[in-house]
Nucleic acid binder design. Structure first.
Length: 238
DNA sequence: GCGACAG
DNA sequence: ATCTTGTCGC
């Protein structure tokens, strides 16, 4: 069964409204907790896929055992796209549907890993921070691109890292090499996790591929959920 | 001033 | 994000 997630009442209708929300929520981010220890407990990947033509977004949450990387639980949700794509306002596009997917899980999510950024954001309040503040969960962001931020190329070996900086002396995240000789990923803190711990989690989630297993699983699942949701219902014929 | 810019 | 065939490699 597929239910269409509602866009919450009071959801910002334009850029000015969204900026005001970020401004208000930014102060609630918690940055002084280390977060759950890497390699233990549960880790949940979240991701979304879009059909902009039909204004539909599908979200998936996949819970992994952090020690074995085996799937413990998963869920999906489908909704209307809640906001246009504006760099810096990505969270407003996907958060309602992501929250619905997290709510549908049969277990607590543990640490949440999302696509995109937390602190590494024009106003230091990216998707991972936003999701963290709304749920109270520990959240980190893992992005495939450095956005507008600068970094020095980390060493070529797996585990090598270098600061992702917004300006002289302001570290907003880390470029982390998860596979030897492969383009790094860009890790930033969302809520209630330290940057060191966030990077340790990401390394523990990348035994084989560039991107965390959590995101890879969530990516595959939300694409499938989108295909299913867009497939026209089959009426039985007599 | 203009364009680019996580997904 | 998404549009998209074949192809090189383990």
């Amino acid at each position: 069964m597929v239910t269409l997630t509602e866009i919450p009442e009071g959801w910002p209708a334009d850029e000015a409204g969204a900026l005001a929300v970020q401004d208000e929520l930014r102060g609630r981010v918690v940055l002084d907790e280390p977060g759950p220890p890497p390699g233990t407990g549960l880790v949940t990947g979240v991701d979304v896929a879009y059909d902009d033509e039909r204004d539909v977004v599908a979200a998936a949450a996949v819970v992994l055992d952090a020690a074995t990387l085996e799937v413990v639980a998963e869920s999906t949700a489908v909704g209307r796209v809640a906001f246009p794509y504006v760099p810096g306002l990505l969270a407003f596009r996907e958060i309602p549907t992501v929250l619905a997917a997290l709510d549908a899980l049969s277990t607590g999510p543990g640490l949440v890993v999302c696509d995109g950024y937390g602190l590494a954001h024009p106003r230091r309040f990216g998707l991972a921070s936003h999701l963290g503040v709304l749920t109270g969960l520990p959240v980190i962001g893992v992005a495939k691109n450095p956005f507008t931020f600068a970094y020095e190329q980390p060493g070529t070996e797996r585990g090598a890292a270098s600061p992702l900086v917004a300006g002289p002396g302001e570290e907003v995240g880390r470029a982390l090499r998860t596979q030897a000789g492969i383009k790094p990923v860009f890790v930033s803190v969302g809520h209630r996790v330290s940057l060191d711990n966030a990077c340790a989690h990401v390394l523990s989630l990348t035994p084989r591929y560039r991107l965390p297993e959590s995101t890879r699983r969530a990516d595959a699942l939300c694409r499938e959920a989108l295909r299913t949701a867009l497939r026209p219902v089959q009426h039985p014929v007599a």
